[in-house]
């Protein structure tokens, strides 16, 4: 494993309170460059909240986040995305009325720097079509390029979301339950895809499917009531009595 490689993301003392309720409590999290890092834990453990904090969708109540050596605690979520930390969502997030191709194109369009040009014809964007279609091909959606995203079945929406995320070629890919709601076949395909794309980037993923976690991840952090319960490799985690007690026994698979 590449645990000796540099640190890409480091959160320290991260806390989030919603009113009186503490969803995340003093979490320290270190993600090493080039690894697949899984964040697991029972429902309501605070995994999505951690994602929202790291990507600056929510401001942390306390704590500091350093990405690629830069303190990003005060940045906006769009800034974080531009720095190379791009997320997908637990509940599939697509642009419903746009075609699958145009969904991916929205990601490709952003780095071109033309997005404020309201006087320019969108015909200009056609130059991105080949690249968009190649990305659709990568997730097995080449036949759906013209279909409005809202009309795609759920598994294909998820695939589209991953293609859109990959279109930004993020250094740190954040996946919030990429397998949620997928059938066995789709899970195998997306697992393969994540394995492929993880060769050249870092992945931080929340996932309930433990066989997927076992297959893909180098490092695992177990979250419980907003706190770290354990961290390490799958084998270590799986044998940790506290984890077995709190998590493995609750029937997740």
């Amino acid at each position: 494993m590449t645990s000796s490689a540099g640190i890409i993301l480091e959160a320290s003392g991260l806390s989030k309170q919603f009113g009186g309720f503490t969803a995340v409590r003093g979490l320290d999290l270190t993600v090493h460059r080039g690894t697949v890092h899984a964040l697991i834990g029972p429902n309501g453990a605070g995994k999505t909240t951690v994602f929202n904090l790291l990507t600056k969708v929510l401001p942390p109540t306390r704590g500091r986040i350093v990405f690629k050596g830069r303190d990003i605690t005060g940045l906006g979520p769009w800034d974080v995305a531009r720095l190379g930390m791009v997320r997908s969502f637990q509940i599939s997030a697509v642009f419903g009325r746009k075609s699958a191709r145009d969904n991916v194109r929205m990601a490709l369009q952003r780095p071109t720097g033309v997005s404020y040009r309201f006087w320019m014809s969108s015909a200009w964007l056609d130059r991105l079509n080949d690249q968009a279609e190649a990305l659709l091909d990568q997730v097995g959606l080449s036949d759906a390029a013209d279909v409005p995203a809202a009309e795609l079945p759920y598994g294909r929406k998820r695939a589209l979301e991953i293609a859109t995320t990959l279109a930004l070629d993020p250094e740190l890919l954040m996946l919030d339950e990429p397998m949620a709601g997928l059938g066995q076949e789709d899970i195998a395909r997306i697992t393969e895809l994540i394995r492929t794309v993880a060769k050249s980037r870092t992945v931080l993923m929340v996932e309930h499917n433990l066989s997927v976690v076992e297959t893909l991840s180098d490092t695992i952090t177990v979250l419980m009531h907003g706190q770290q319960l354990a961290a390490g490799r799958y084998a270590d985690i799986a044998n940790n009595p506290a984890v077995i007690d709190a998590y493995m026994g609750t029937g997740h698979d």
Binding site: V86, F95, M106, R110, P111
Partner: peptide, 16 residues
């Protein structure tokens, strides 16, 4: 139209 369809997604792609 991307913001209309899904604003959090547009934000996550880096659009302010």
């Amino acid at each position: 139209t991307a913001i209309r369809d899904n604003e959090p997604r547009a934000v996550s792609l880096g659009y302010d």
